[in-house]
Design a protein around this nucleic acid. Structure first.
Lengths: 228, 228
DNA sequence: CGTCGTTGAATTGTTCAACACTTGACTTTG
DNA sequence: CAAAGTCAAGTGTTGAACAATTCAACGACG
């Protein structure tokens, strides 16, 4: 295991980060079982360290642990999607309402997330586009100025992203979402928080519907055993 | 380590539960350092298992992990208290507003938490009183019918409780809180959700102020090194 | 023919012992 | 008295071993 500079985090944390990345990038798809020995060997760490890493990710909700049956990448159900979006509405909308134009630092970051999103969409980089989209929303949460809330929200976003990367790029048009985000940004800078909140609410409804469709297809596919 | 029946949870989870209990009961006070070897030995488990347990609790926020410096029971700052109560208001008040008298199952549980609270106060059992108080509020969150929210809230309540058990029983009158909770229950059963939410808001402000006072004293005490 | 133990390999759960690395306190030195 | 060096204690990580459990294959039995 390489150590370029001074580690300020444990190896277990690093391993967790690597796996988290792979899950969120869709490289490890929901349902995929992870075996301790081969995985630990492939990353050049001991089994104990790997166990700590999987423990971290299972507490984050990205992995599901069944005793004596190993861990597997979590699979969202439709109910999960409902739950998550209920929370997103509950957290993001008040965030926007509590926003203040004075927080130009956050607004600026939102702006650059927006730019990054447009760039990624034009470059057809779906993965990066999803990242910027979710970063846009994460930044809204920052208006609450609450660390605990941010980390909880981040956990939710991780779960959303796990499903998002499975979206069929050919049938889903990411370009469609640019104007909505742009409009929200404009309303924010103009101090029209209520209008922005209303638009955000619609956007979240739309987003939920889209993700639900994906998950429904995904669940159907996984329940049909081997039909290659 | 005794195993009475069929374990459906790992030893690490059990150890985590034991430590969680000790922290929430005030047996392990904020700031207390935990050493792996003696602790593992005293509970009859290996160091690795103990590490998994502390990993769990540190992700729950009950323990603080400093690399190469060990773990210690978390110490809430005044800012932490503010953050937590901001969240409590943000979650509990909408919960009450989303309540429905039809959920008589929850209402009934609230009722019994209330009864338990009164009983504990009369029995001068401060620890149990705190438990019932916090259970009362946890039940309100149930109106959201959202598992993720419940577990997040439970984490917050754990942190609150860690501070609550340090309250000076002699200077603080737990009996004072009975009428407020009683009134909230009445308003709930009567379907007067808005009034209930308003009262809850006041109650939370009061509760925050009280806890802040405790924490301020606690922090002052811990910053003054040895002055016995 | 199908159901129910039995067996056994594979995998996870847990322990143990060792070593590397970091920290903090103590000691030495200029 | 401050800066550098020394050292013990504690954490981070490893590797190997053993126990416990699961799962699938197999065969006995009704």
């Amino acid at each position: 295991m390489e150590r370029s500079q001074i580690d300020r985090v444990s190896v277990a944390d690093q391993v967790a980060s690597i796996l988290r990345q792979r899950i969120l990038d869709g490289e490890l798809r929901p349902g995929t079982p992870l075996q301790e020995v081969p995985l630990a060997a492939s990353l050049g760490v001991s089994r104990n360290t790997m166990r700590e890493a999987t423990r971290i990710l299972s507490l984050e909700g990205l992995l599901k642990r069944s005793i004596h049956r190993g861990v597997a990448v979590s699979q969202l159900s439709l109910k999960d999607v409902q739950e998550i979006y209920h929370l997103r509405r509950m957290l993001e909308i008040p965030a926007v309402l509590a926003a203040q134009s004075s927080r130009s630092d956050i607004l600026q970051e939102i702006r650059s997330a927006l730019d990054g999103y447009e760039r990624s969409v034009r470059a057809r980089d779906w993965l990066q586009a999803v990242s910027f989209d979710l970063q846009f929303h994460s930044l809204l949460i920052r208006f609450h100025q609450n660390k605990r809330l941010e980390s909880f929200y981040q956990k939710l976003i991780g779960e959303v992203r796990m499903g998002m990367v499975l979206v069929d790029r050919t049938h889903d048009d990411p370009e469609r979402l640019i104007p909505v985000h742009h409009k929200m940004y404009q309303l924010l800078t103009a101090g029209k928080f209520k209008q922005c909140a209303a638009l955000l609410g619609q956007h979240l409804d739309d987003s939920e519907a889209r993700l639900s469709r994906v998950m429904a297809g995904q669940i159907a596919k996984s329940s049909a055993k081997q039909t290659t």
